[in-house]
Design a protein around this nucleic acid. Structure first.
Lengths: 187, 187
DNA sequence: GTTGCTTTTTGATAAATGTCAAAAGTTTAA
DNA sequence: TTAAACTTTTGACATTTATCAAAAAGCAAC
């Protein structure tokens, strides 16, 4: 929990009172490798904060699993589309390492928003940060070559290359596994 | 201004008082085709609401202009990366039709956040919506073929195909203009 | 309407990336 | 420690998309 509170301070300061309220709403949970936080078709009713471990979001396309994002330490994780809209998720969220995470229900979060302006501010700022992070991934996906995308990964998020199997990284970058293998052999 | 207020209500209701405060902070502006709201290197200090008209965001790559987004009626427009971080923008924002828009400075918006929890809530919700909209574009960019992306455009945002020159659409979809022309001839 | 300018299309070719199949390497667990 | 199950690499080939160049079409101003 100290991780979560410390991390949150990087976004926006919170009063002791709000911190306490957050603490009361977040619940700790441990998961082992390969367990699921969410499977497609379910509605994502929780927001998770990853204290330790690693997750991936993937969906099924023509019988293949397409990993489109990863979550690591200090990431907030959920199926945002489902969490925000209340619709069924098209994606699965799976632990790719044994993990410790903190979860809060959407109901509790909404209540916190009502009680604490500063918590709603915090989340507004988190969305800002996540928005520009996604924007950067989008530009990479659309306008960079496969090699550039991989180089970029090594440069900016090397922990992904270190902790995650090649096949997951390939689909994360939108490349076939074979092509990624060939790209990598050139370094 | 009625457009703006009406549109905002779709996201989150506002008290009369907050509506009035918003009105006092937004300033109306008209631009003619080809004018710029922002050029690369500048810091984006304003958020715009497009009442009428059309804009594009583009950046320069190897001497070519890469259009990566469009804004139309009822869209909020700025270089989000620059607006959020305060860093110089890498993109240009240009009017592609004569347009009417409302602008608010970041300072004024921040003040409104401080005074009105409900306005910060509104913006939190706008970010949520824009986040999942971008997520969808990302998935399309990364995992769909050029034809699928064009079909998707016709299906979900046909106004883009109708109002915007082919070259802009091509780079918006991450396709060369020639390829898009060939794809289109197959319909 | 003709001239000049921009946008779109068409053709030929090249480059990047995907697919399928099999081999090689690594990890896991009985 | 060894077989089974994954994961990664390699090869041959197919497909998609980009690039360059030129022609055609559309549009605007005179």
């Amino acid at each position: 929990m100290q991780n979560l509170l410390a991390h949150i301070k990087n976004y926006s300061p919170l009063s002791t009172e709000a911190q306490q309220a957050l603490q009361d709403c977040f619940e700790k949970n441990s998961f082992s490798k390969n367990e699921y936080l969410l499977t497609q078709g379910q509605v994502s009713r929780h927001l998770y904060f990853l204290e330790k471990g690693a997750t991936r979001g993937f969906y099924n396309l023509d019988g293949k699993e397409i990993t489109h994002w990863f979550g690591f330490e200090n990431d907030f994780v959920t199926s945002f589309h489902s969490f925000i809209t209340g619709e069924a998720a098209v994606e699965n969220i799976q632990l790719i390492e044994g993990s410790i995470l903190w979860m809060i229900s959407k109901e509790n979060l909404t209540e916190l928003f009502n009680k604490y302006h500063e918590i709603e501010r915090l989340v507004r700022i988190v969305y800002e940060k996540y928005y520009i992070r996604l924007e950067e991934r989008f530009v990479n996906a659309q306008f960079k070559t496969a090699s550039e995308r991989y180089e970029n990964l090594l440069l900016h998020t090397p922990h992904i290359a270190e902790r995650v199997p090649l096949g997951f990284i390939a689909s994360y970058l939108g490349i076939s596994q074979e092509t990624l293998s060939r790209i990598r052999s050139k370094f």
